[in-house]
Design a protein around this nucleic acid. Sequence first.
DNA 1: AAGCCGTATTTTATCGATAATATGACGGCA
DNA 2: TGCCGTCATATTATCGATAAAATACGGCTT
Lengths: 336, 336
Amino acid sequence: MARVTMADVAREAGVSAMTVSNVLNERLPVNEPTRARVMAAVAALGYEVNLTARHLRAGRTDTVAFIVPSFHDYFGEIADKIAPLIEADGRHLVLERTSASPEYEMAAVSVARLQFYDGVLLSVAGLDRDQLDRVRTPKPIVLLGERDVPDRFNHVRLANEEGARLATAHMIEHGSRRILALGCTFDTAHMMSSDRRVGWERALRDAGLDVDARHVVPVSTYTSAAGRDALLDVIASGLPFDGVFAVTDVIALGAIAALAESGLRVPVDVQLAGFDNLDMARFVPPGLTSVDANHEGVAETAVGLLRRQMAGWTGPAEHVVAPVRLVVRGSTRGGA
Amino acid sequence: MARVTMADVAREAGVSAMTVSNVLNERLPVNEPTRARVMAAVAALGYEVNLTARHLRAGRTDTVAFIVPSFHDYFGEIADKIAPLIEADGRHLVLERTSASPEYEMAAVSVARLQFYDGVLLSVAGLDRDQLDRVRTPKPIVLLGERDVPDRFNHVRLANEEGARLATAHMIEHGSRRILALGCTFDTAHMMSSDRRVGWERALRDAGLDVDARHVVPVSTYTSAAGRDALLDVIASGLPFDGVFAVTDVIALGAIAALAESGLRVPVDVQLAGFDNLDMARFVPPGLTSVDANHEGVAETAVGLLRRQMAGWTGPAEHVVAPVRLVVRGSTRGGA
DNA sequence: AAGCCGTATTTTATCGATAATATGACGGCA
DNA sequence: TGCCGTCATATTATCGATAAAATACGGCTT
């Protein structure tokens, strides 16, 4: 319980604490016999450095935080891509969660909490531009996600509109004429779902089809359960449709369930496409056509920007739009 | 960049640093006019406490770590259940990842790294009993997962054998006679997959069926892709089977893909059951029958044990086996 | 008027490591 | 012999907050 400190090691080895520090951090050279005595003392006492004290004095934690709305699904997959990149620099990654609520998110990026980290990747879900503008931190920070953010932040987002357009156009090309935008919204505050709606609209217009507001079907939360329920409601209402663009794969999975329960065959009766290309999309029969944003590429870009800041770069922030491509699978008629 | 310290606030308010501390932490009473001046100074300077300094001095971080093999799927879902429980105590939760490698896992539970936290939930994947026994930390710690652990650790694990037995017996009851144990193994070092194999065997024996070693199908990793590949190999080999017990839902998802690709109908030709009852299991057609270990209950139990330790309890460690039940869905013939 | 008390506030010491600076020992060279 | 430079190691001061001990002060008692 009584922790072994550097001073204990120093006493044991008959040297000063500073020499112990120099041995362990290889800062100043230490004579071989002395070094050996110190190492022996370290081993004998089982000494391990107090990282908190080091942080207070040296101002470095070698830790990066990835702050996400929730731990599962999309963010879990992204995090698993980011972690190795951070570890490659000799730092390590921790995840914090905000429940997608603005208060939690604001608290998570408070100066106090950020002090624990050398850098932060923040997946913005709850905060709007004004709230973000109030975040005044000297810490290296890179924002991820589909919100509007102040210019001074480095930011990586996806080509939402283009992705939605690709998916929708693909279904039109293969015969769908009445395509729902499941989980999309007209509410421009939620940019992910409204940008993707705009892409869906554009595909319709490009094909000379009408945009029917009833085809925009909001969801209560971005979960499979909510996606399923929303689509079941549409089916029950009798509104005819022959395609579904789901705003995320998680919601698409709910749609798959709703369609299966209702006896609608995918892709024969209804084509379906999602967004994110989660692992799961490859395996859910008949295979979910999905917009792929290249998680690894996004992770590399974001970590690259962060790394640059942590190295001291102070040039202008970058705003990267990650390109997307459509991965066609069995849930649309272009698939195998 | 030059951070505002408590001393700055004290100067601004014309009091000592200690008074500022007392105002902010409500430790000793402070007169109202003084308190108001301090609060005004805090607001004027935008002061936020340095948590690292507090930690060094006060020995408390109000942070709990959940150390997991990987961020996604099962662990992400569990983590989302644990987080609110930790937050209810005024602490917050961070996730760290070990890549399921013993070295990383050992490093993650080193005395040095644990110092950042008031308590630790460790999902053991890579470490065996001996390695765990070498973990000497005074920190409150609760182990989760299906490994054998030293007695002195609090530990929560699932009723693996019983769960596997339930799932297998259910498929036997509905007509399966040749049931694969996909992702199971005879290697007793990996307890999750061998305990579940034992449950599968027991169900077979209870029903008077032979245990065929060829039915135990290992997987290279616990991913859907590996599950799919392994099952495709079995199908290609011509070994007849009419049921699959998949050792996890993630692997079951791979099995679903393999069966669909091979034109085998679930549950008509082959029944399928998984383990974990992930969210996804409800939505993947025709609904995945799965062993449910009540994630919330597991989370509550684990957090309860941790909370007790953090509160100073030093009684004997507990070894909880969380009960399981079978959730029957369309992938077996008992389902809707 | 001296003594005491309780409350408000300040002083001092400390958590453990480390940057910056100082000291000491020894060899080389005039 | 005396002075200087170099390398190894030790001392000192500090990061920012806080626990514990000390002090200041107004009021009250006797």
